[in-house]
Design a protein around this nucleic acid. Structure first.
Lengths: 117, 117
DNA sequence: TCCGCGTAATCGTTTAAGCGGTTGTTCGTT
DNA sequence: AACGAACAACCGCTTAAACGATTACGCGGA
């Protein structure tokens, strides 16, 4: 039961929910992606990603200097179900908005070749 | 998005999850039922039930002196989905244990005709 | 009607937890 | 060595939980 309480606590923060929504539409993202798309400070982005990692909801993988996070494919089936139920019932406007911000950022990133803007 | 964060926060407490599990197996329960089955103080039981009520997860109905709480049938379909996903993936031992405690309490309640034990 | 009783909600205080910002540290690349 | 990316530690602030005690509510009996 404690496991579920922890799981839901990880989902009880708006920033973390936005992170999850982004990772439902994009297979993997690094800290600086989250930072720029959601307009967060670096420490805030990193802290929330670590939180989701420690909760077992995300996995991380280092590629050179970047640490990429993705939804943990080995999450319990109930966990996956819950994340999908959440994602599917978000207002479409919100997901579109997030998707647009993500695409804009990806363009910028291609041009500057760094996260430091 | 804030709505979801609030919803998940309501589920991020072990006591509240136990309450929900009980209400998934029994259509309605009053404060003193929760109090006795889960061995909580009256104020703690009442407070958590109020919390779940204010989160829209439960409804309440007064019958004489008792206030009965039940799962809100008009909860979003995603909310219902999430509650079911949670309940179905709890360890069966836990649900059996809760069910047994509930039945024991119901026997006691019949005999004494009051909650004041 | 008034009072007592059982039930539930709330109040006030203390204690613990969470979040955010700043700053410093680690790691790896160049 | 210098730099960028990510993480960790500290601090202050806000929030929430626990707890006991008190208050409010309904009902029944004197």
């Amino acid at each position: 039961m404690k496991r579920f309480a922890q799981f839901f606590k990880a989902l009880s923060d708006e920033t973390r929910l936005q992170v999850i929504a982004l990772l439902m539409m994009e297979p993997e993202l690094c800290v600086c992606d989250i930072e720029n798309v959601l307009k967060l400070t670096q420490s805030k982005a990193s802290r929330h990603l670590r939180y989701l990692l420690n909760s077992g909801i995300l996995t991380d993988e280092r590629k050179n200097v970047w640490v990429y996070y993705r939804i943990n494919e080995e999450l319990d089936s109930s966990g996956i179900e819950i994340l999908k139920a959440f994602y599917n019932s978000i207002d479409k406007k919100l997901t579109e908005e997030l998707g647009q911000k993500l695409n804009e950022w990806k363009k910028v990133k291609e041009n500057i070749g760094t996260c430091d803007i």
